[in-house]
Computed example of a mutant assay.
Amino acid sequence: MAWVVLVVAGVLETVWAVALDGSKGFSRLVPSLVFVVALVLSMGGLAYAMRGIPLGTGYAVWVGIGAIGTALYGMVALGDAVTAARVTCLLLILSGVVGLKVLH
C-alpha cells in the first residue's frame, strides 16, 4: 500500500508544480488553490509512504516521479523541446525509480 500511495503522491507533485506555474506567482486564485491542495496531499502521501519505505528511497522515488511528470507535461502541453537527450535523461530517471523499487 505504501508504494501505491507514494506513486500517487509523486503524481500530485506534478500537479502542484504545474499549478504553481499557472498561479503566476499566486496572483490567480484557482491555480493557487490547486497548488495548496495538491501540495498538502502530496506531502501527506509522502509522509504516509515513509512509514514503510526508507527515507532515501521514498524521497528519491517521489521526486523522480514528480520530475518526470512535470517534464512530460512541459513537452506535451507547453511545447517544451522534445529531444533525444531529454528523453534519454527522463528514461534514466525512470530506470532509477524502478531500480529503487526493485531493490527495496
Rank of each mutant, 00 (worst) to 15 (best):
M1A: 15
M1V: 12
A2Q: 07
W3N: 03
L6G: 00
L6H: 03
A9I: 03
A9T: 08
A9G: 05
G10C: 11
L12N: 00
E13Y: 00
E13I: 01
E13F: 02
V15G: 03
V15Y: 03
W16Y: 15
W16N: 12
V18F: 04
V18Y: 01
A19T: 11
L20T: 11
D21F: 08
G22Q: 13
G22C: 10
K24F: 13
K24I: 12
G25R: 11
F26E: 12
F26D: 10
R28E: 15
R28T: 13
R28S: 08
L29F: 13
V30P: 10
V30M: 13
V30Q: 08
L33C: 12
V34C: 04
V36S: 05
V36K: 05
A38E: 11
L39A: 13
L39M: 15
V40A: 14
L41I: 11
L41Y: 06
L41G: 05
S42Y: 04
S42R: 04
S42N: 04
M43Y: 14
G45T: 04
L46H: 03
L46D: 00
A49W: 05
P54Q: 03
G56P: 03
G56I: 02
T57H: 01
T57V: 11
Y59M: 10
Y59L: 04
Y59V: 06
V61N: 04
W62N: 01
W62K: 00
V63E: 01
G64H: 01
G64W: 00
G64R: 00
I65M: 08
G66H: 00
A67D: 02
A67T: 12
I68R: 01
I68Q: 02
G69R: 02
T70K: 10
T70E: 07
A71R: 04
A71I: 01
A71N: 00
A71D: 02
L72G: 01
L72E: 05
Y73T: 08
Y73L: 07
V76Q: 10
A77D: 13
G79Q: 10
G79R: 12
A81L: 06
T83N: 03
A84N: 14
A84H: 14
A85T: 12
V87M: 09
V87N: 04
T88N: 03
T88S: 06
C89T: 14
C89K: 12
L90K: 09
L90M: 13
L91H: 06
L92M: 15
I93C: 08
L94T: 13
L94V: 14
G96V: 07
G96K: 12
V97I: 15
V97G: 06
V98F: 06
G99D: 09
G99E: 04
L100H: 09
K101D: 07
L103V: 13
L103Q: 13
